[in-house]
């Protein structure tokens, strides 16, 4: 698994909870290093081990934590780069949804050996979509739900998300766009300087 993904989970744990919690998780997994390097690749097993250890240490349902991880990725100040890269996808929330189909390719373009799950957006009816996630990251549907919740706010759109149909192997999220101009939303400056 790409270090960027593992490091994101690590950052989520240490930023959202504490460094002590992260150390506890790392110890439980039996890692012989302090932290993940974002530009190295690790054994796939390690990622699910870290997620399982996090669930155990924090004593909360895995799906809930993964959804929080998604929200963290696009709202925490330290992850501003992720939010910006996603917002390049579209001018409005609907536009953004349609750009998810190419997120896999976009990620690979930026970091050639980074493989995100592939996603497929279907429009069931006007303003009603389903997003199917496929790939080597079990639970990605939960992460994506968290991301969508925050990004919708970011665009100022009001959406209803239902991920009750997420099960192992098929992760489907139902998205109902209630009002695309519900609130002001957060700005996105195309040419902003990101450190």
């Amino acid at each position: 698994m790409h270090g960027l993904i593992n490091r994101s989970i690590q950052n989520f744990i240490s930023d959202n909870f504490s460094l002590a919690v992260w150390r506890q998780v790392a110890r439980r997994v039996g890692m012989d290093f302090e932290e993940f390097e974002p530009m190295l690749t690790y054994e796939n097993r390690l990622t699910s081990d870290v997620i399982d250890a996090m669930t155990y240490v924090l004593g909360r349902p895995k799906s809930e934590l993964l959804e929080d991880l998604g929200s963290y990725l696009v709202s925490h100040p330290s992850q501003e780069g992720v939010r910006r890269l996603l917002r390049f996808g579209g001018v409005g929330f609907e536009d953004f949804l349609h750009s998810l189909d190419e997120l896999h390719d976009r990620a690979k373009l930026a970091v050639p050996n980074l493989y995100l799950p592939t996603m497929e957006l279907d429009q069931v009816e006007r303003g009603h979509f389903t997003l199917v996630c496929r790939g080597s990251l079990p639970g990605f549907g939960n992460v994506m739900t968290g991301i969508l919740r925050v990004i919708a706010d970011d665009y100022g759109a009001l959406v209803l998300l239902d991920n009750s149909c997420i099960s192992e192997g098929c992760e489907k999220i139902c998205i109902k766009l209630v009002d695309r101009d519900f609130a002001q939303g957060r700005g996105f400056e195309l040419g902003a300087l990101v450190s």
């Binding site: 974002p38 373009l109 930026a110 040419g191």
Partner: peptide, 20 residues
């Protein structure tokens, strides 16, 4: 837009590599 996306994504990746 793709160009701007790439510049930004590559700069982030580059600075991560640089730190490593």
């Amino acid at each position: 837009i793709e160009m701007l996306y790439l510049i930004e994504a590559k700069s982030l990746a580059m600075s991560a590599s640089h730190r490593l």
